[in-house]
Computed example of a mutant assay.
Amino acid sequence: MIETLKDRVNRDAGLVRRGRFLTTSLLLEVGSTAWLISIYEGRIVAVTKGPFVMPSSAFVLRAPAEEWEKFWRRRPPPGSNDLMALIKRRVLKAEGDLQVFMANLRYFKEALGKLREGVAA
């Protein structure tokens, strides 16, 4: 499913425009599986599945697979509907250069929301 993130985000012109000043990479950990996501000027240029020995990324978003599954439901339950709600519940760990994450929070919320069930691919 995460493999489709690149196409889903890049097809959304508004989201790409929102991230036009964003060039970074992030490590997304879904349970024990890691994904390195590279972004250039708001477009996702690569989604690479781990394992990695020493991945280079600006920051990491890390949560158990069950929590990501709840987040990616068509209608997530309260507390699982938003990245900040996951952080508040202490099930999502954000580590690294959080300035990049917080300055582009809406972009990341919408981009990862593209993986929700029923969202057009």
Rank of each mutant, 00 (worst) to 15 (best):
1 M>E: 13
1 M>N: 12
2 I>N: 14
2 I>C: 11
2 I>R: 13
4 T>R: 15
5 L>P: 10
6 K>H: 07
6 K>C: 08
7 D>M: 06
7 D>K: 09
7 D>R: 13
8 R>C: 09
8 R>W: 01
9 V>Y: 04
9 V>D: 08
9 V>M: 08
10 N>V: 01
13 A>K: 11
13 A>L: 09
13 A>T: 04
14 G>S: 03
15 L>H: 05
16 V>P: 05
18 R>S: 05
19 G>R: 05
21 F>K: 15
22 L>M: 06
23 T>D: 05
23 T>W: 07
23 T>L: 05
25 S>V: 06
25 S>T: 13
25 S>G: 15
27 L>W: 03
30 V>W: 03
30 V>N: 11
30 V>F: 08
31 G>W: 09
34 A>Y: 08
34 A>F: 07
37 I>H: 04
37 I>V: 15
38 S>P: 02
38 S>A: 13
39 I>D: 07
39 I>W: 02
39 I>H: 06
39 I>G: 02
40 Y>E: 14
40 Y>A: 12
40 Y>D: 13
40 Y>T: 13
41 E>A: 13
42 G>V: 02
43 R>L: 08
43 R>V: 00
43 R>F: 10
45 V>K: 04
45 V>L: 04
46 A>N: 14
46 A>V: 14
46 A>F: 14
49 K>M: 12
50 G>A: 10
51 P>D: 01
51 P>R: 07
52 F>H: 06
52 F>E: 06
52 F>Y: 11
54 M>K: 15
57 S>Q: 14
57 S>N: 15
57 S>L: 00
58 A>M: 02
60 V>G: 02
60 V>W: 14
60 V>Y: 11
62 R>P: 00
63 A>L: 05
66 E>T: 13
66 E>M: 11
66 E>C: 07
68 W>G: 06
70 K>Y: 08
71 F>R: 00
74 R>V: 00
76 P>H: 01
81 N>W: 11
81 N>H: 15
82 D>G: 00
83 L>A: 09
84 M>H: 09
86 L>V: 05
88 K>P: 00
88 K>E: 00
88 K>H: 09
88 K>F: 03
89 R>N: 10
91 V>M: 04
91 V>E: 04
92 L>M: 01
93 K>G: 00
95 E>C: 01
98 L>C: 06
99 Q>A: 15
100 V>C: 06
100 V>L: 14
102 M>F: 15
105 L>T: 01
105 L>N: 07
107 Y>Q: 07
107 Y>L: 10
108 F>A: 11
108 F>C: 08
109 K>I: 12
111 A>E: 06
112 L>S: 07
113 G>W: 01
119 V>W: 02
121 A>Q: 14
